[in-house]
Design a protein around this nucleic acid. Structure first.
Length: 876
RNA sequence: GGGGGCGUAGCUCAGUUGGUUAGAGCGUUUGCUUGACAUGCAAAAGGUCACAGAUUCGAGUUCUGUCGUCCCCACCA
């Protein structure tokens, strides 16, 4: 027989237990038509990334739900996977190349991809190992990767279908261009920040006059691409200039002065330079007025030939020189400091350049509508519900999605161009001949797809779609998606419209949204701040169970949470408590033959703890079903620590150490029954330690992970009896408090006199009361004090307690104590009267409530009388 | 400009459909090596639930407004 150590030490078993679960295939979801499936898709972390606190919380929440459902008998599939993270990974590999003094272009596409795959092989396993350390019970046999065969096929198929329906198009539009990564980005990949900049006021000469139009700009270098200046049509100051021609300085171009509603006459000078190639609003204006689009910048952020003599200069150098030149020409009116929101690349931080570029887009309007309806019709539900509003807000204002990226790492766009006739061919499988002219000279589009295009298909691409696989048929649609609110626009939304469009079903029925894990001061954890806490270090120090529990206690769905060491310590302490409670039970059960709960003659205390267990089972189950993980965890901790450890284990000691063999056996039976259930309830939260403890239990069969989740049993709820037994607890608490209040040394046993009608109940629990209250004897009496001795007294639920304490009692202190007690009771009576004397309350409130209030008042009146009598008695 | 969160004990936060005396952890005070656990036990102090109205017999909880604070989106060149 193994022995349990005095303190819980995660290092003794976490690794061993995980290996054992794997060995026994505990996480594998075998299709079972007798069972109801429960499917969760893991949000795929970046394949070369590392586990951070956000992941840790996300994974923990999913694992709790999956383990819970698995134990409840569902066929639970938690499908893990990783994301190729096109841009993020490419940036890293390019950086590695730079360290070798090489560039992407130098090594070429093929070699670059070879290196990236090698990089993926090298680091792709790391995140998976880290997920395992957390205890994640995912089905590793189904581990997916967004660029594996399955997912790639799904990507081509989805693209093909959208293309055929005309929902994917290629066009020249303003996109966000990162000059650092040299690729287009979608709107959601832009991060805005308030940057200090300037407003430059320039004069543009009006042709054929001595007059000037003054414009203000924050990006002087773009003036070389101006193709008009606009004013508001209602702006009287400029109406006489509308239609006139301006001379664009530094060039020999003539540009028109046009009128457009877009211009705000109150802002700046009321005249706006229009640069359709380099500003989204200007682009729209340009379309309305049929203006030429002149790009003046290259993809790397240098000026191009269209900028004349500034060609080749970096955009910021060109800015300097242009401002200087304008000043020289006397066309610079003034410079004002100006802070404005500037877009930056979410990956490399480079200031983005809005430019006109030919890219692939997904038409969003037709896709957004059904996605909105699905949530409006409750086909998919957000928890908490408020996130549906945010979801609507996004989809209702959505613009077309730029999906092409000028990168190499990713899904190549499945479009080929015939080099002979120029035909554009979209196909799932690589075409060999041009269907139009029969040429074999076909060239695939150079670009790859936005990473999120493949992530959007994740709930079904991982199950084998578009093939009609058994997995897809059984596990799809999935049940719940667990993710942070920051991912709604990137991912949740896109999975929704992609799922509905491609499979005609919502991809998940529930979306459980959680908040961000912040640092101790409430700041976002970030690399640049260096305030991130490494979950692996926490696991090393406190264990995965402690980390998991600390991440889900005290959290509310959708709210941010702070991570602190003290929280982990609190969790660790709780786990140690569970450990020791189990140790206590196991030690006492050593070698004993323990009866089943059904074969035991239960005592009041037994029924009380079993009753508490039943309500714990019910509340925890309900909370988990509602995704209230924080509440479930709190309830469990409260039950285990307070009800089970502090009360029942203590109450059980007289029986365990007593002479009555039968009673001892029975008590052990109850202890084991409750412990067994508690471990099962706790398992989803703290899987390792519960599994470890389970192996020590004399009556345990198999493992917790594969055991049945406890079910609420009404026959064991013993509501009335439990309520009655609370009187015993109340009595013990009252005696303890009295002893402290009158400065009685804890070790000194007191003689209790009780006036009570619950003599049988108290007699039945005599030994427990003596032990827990620190008393030497209990004596029932009829009169209001202990046989004429000087006593202190207290009124409690089941009667009045008198303790003779002789010289220990300070009369003044005792009088003060009783007066305070009297005040409290009077307050309660006044409160009850406030309600009961209100006719409306008596007439309109539920009867039960009124009756309760009356009973309460009676009780307090009785208490008041007793306390007053005792006060009087003090001076006799 | 649009959308949303938060404001409850010294600190960090819970508070399920309105209904006992508003809870927890940490911290604080006092006392305890009580045959599982000092990563512990017992007792206690500490809150006019931001403010003002409204609905209601009854509001931390619902509605309106105000103040403070944070986030997301859009964006005036």
């Amino acid at each position: 027989m193994r022995e349990m150590q005095t303190t819980y030490n995660h290092k003794d078993f976490e690794e061993r237990i995980y290996a054992d679960w794997l060995k026994n295939d505990c996480f594998r979801a075998e299709i079972d038509l007798e069972k109801v499936p429960f499917t969760v898709m893991m949000p795929p972390p970046n394949v070369t990334g590392q586990l951070h606190m956000g992941h840790a919380m996300d994974e923990t929440m999913q694992d709790i739900l999956v383990r819970f459902k698995r134990m409840q008998g569902y066929c639970a599939l938690w499908l893990p996977g990783t994301d190729h993270a096109a841009l993020a990974t490419e940036v890293k590999v390019a950086q590695q190349l730079r360290e070798e003094g090489l560039s992407k272009e130098e090594v070429g596409r093929e070699e670059f991809l070879r290196r990236t795959w090698a990089w993926k092989e090298k680091y792709g396993g790391r995140i998976v190992e880290q997920l395992k350390k957390l205890g994640s019970s995912c089905d590793w046999s189904r581990l997916a990767f967004t660029m594996d065969e399955k997912c790639s096929l799904a990507v081509r198929e989805a693209f093909f279908r959208l293309y055929k329906k005309g929902l994917i198009y290629r066009g020249n539009r303003i996109i966000n261009w990162c000059t650092g990564c040299k690729t287009a980005l979608s709107d959601v990949e832009v991060e805005y920040s308030e940057d200090a900049g300037h407003f430059w006021y320039f004069n543009y000469p009006v042709e054929g006059t001595e007059e000037y139009i003054t414009i203000a700009t924050t990006r002087p270098e773009t003036m070389l691409g101006d193709t008009a200046v606009a004013v508001n049509p209602k702006d009287k100051r400029y109406s006489r200039y509308v239609g006139k021609t301006l001379c664009l300085p530094l060039t020999d171009r003539k540009i028109p002065l046009i009128a457009d509603e877009y211009v705000d006459p109150e802002f700046g000078t009321g005249c706006v330079k229009i640069t359709p190639a380099h500003d989204p609003n200007d682009f729209e204006v340009g379309l309305r007025h049929n203006l030429p689009v002149i790009r003046v910048m290259n993809d790397d952020g240098t000026m191009n030939e269209a900028s004349g003599k500034y060609a080749g200069l970096d955009r910021f150098e060109a800015r300097k020189q242009i401002v200087a030149k304008m000043q020289e020409l006397g066309l610079l009116v003034k410079i004002e400091p100006h802070t404005h929101n500037v877009g930056h690349c979410s990956r490399c931080g480079t200031t983005l350049e809005p430019v006109v570029s030919r890219q692939w887009f997904v038409k969003m309007q037709p896709l957004a509508k059904p996605a909105i309806d699905a949530v409006a019709k409750n086909k998919t539900k957000f928890t908490p519900d408020r996130f549906s509003k945010i979801y609507y807000n996004w989809l209702e204002n959505i613009r077309d999605w730029c999906i092409s990226r000028q990168l190499w790492w990713g899904h190549r766009i499945p479009v080929w161009y015939c080099e002979d006739c120029g035909e554009e061919i979209c196909a799932v499988e690589t075409p060999t001949v041009c269907p139009k002219c029969g040429s074999v000279r076909l060239k695939q589009d150079e670009d790859v797809l936005d990473t999120w295009f493949s992530s959007a298909l994740w709930p079904f691409s991982t199950l084998g779609w578009p093939n009609n696989t058994p997995d897809f048929n059984y596990f799809y649609p999935t049940d719940v998606l667990v993710t942070g609110y920051d991912i709604i626009p990137f991912w949740v939304m896109r999975m929704m419209f992609s799922g509905i469009e491609q499979t005609d079903k919502v991809p998940f029925r529930d979306v459980l949204i959680h908040g961000l894990v912040r640092d101790e001061q409430g700041r976002k954890m970030s690399k640049s701040l260096g305030n991130g806490i490494d979950p692996l270090e926490i696991i090393e120090k406190y264990g995965a169970d402690s980390l998991r529990l600390s991440l889900v206690t005290g959290i509310a769905p959708g709210n941010d949470t702070r991570f602190t060491d003290t929280k982990v310590e609190a969790s660790r302490n709780f786990i140690n408590k569970v450990w020791n409670a189990a140790r206590f039970v196991v030690m006492n059960a050593q070698g004993a033959e323990v009866p089943a709960i059904t074969d035991i003659r239960l005592q009041p205390a037994d029924r009380w703890i079993i009753s508490r267990l039943q309500s714990c089972i019910r509340e925890v189950t309900l909370s988990l079903q509602k995704y209230d993980l924080g509440i479930a965890a709190d309830k469990l901790i409260d039950f285990t620590w307070n009800d089970f450890c502090d009360w029942y284990i203590e109450l059980s000691k007289p029986a365990l150490y007593g002479e009555d063999k039968e009673r001892k056996r029975a008590t052990l039976g109850v202890l084991l029954f409750v412990l067994d259930n508690a471990l099962k309830l706790l398992h989803p939260f703290i899987p390792f330690v519960t599994e470890e403890i389970y192996s020590y239990l004399p009556n345990a069969k198999g493992k917790v992970i594969t055991s049945d989740y406890p079910r609420y049993n009404m026959k064991l709820s013993y509501k009335k009896e439990a309520k009655v037994f609370e009187g015993v607890i109340d009595l013990i608490k009252a005696v303890r408090a009295m002893k402290v209040e009158v400065n009685c040394p804890p070790a000194k046993k007191v003689h209790l006199y009780l006036v009570t009608e619950a003599r049988r109940l108290i007699a039945a629990n005599k030994n427990s009361i003596l032990r827990l209250a620190g008393a030497s004897a209990i004596e029932f009496t009829e009169n209001g004090n202990g046989n004429g001795e000087k006593t202190v007294s207290k009124v409690c639920e089941i009667g009045q307690i008198f303790i003779p304490l002789g010289e220990l009692v300070n009369l003044d202190e005792e009088r003060a104590r009783l007066n305070k007690e009297l005040e409290r009771i009077k307050g309660e009576i006044a409160r009850a009267d406030g309600k009961l004397l209100n006719k409306n309350f008596v007439a309109k409130a539920p009867k039960k409530l009124v009756e309760d209030e009356r009973a309460k008042k009676e009780k307090y009146l009785d208490m008041k009388e007793k306390v007053e009598k005792q006060l009087k008695g003090l001076f006799e």
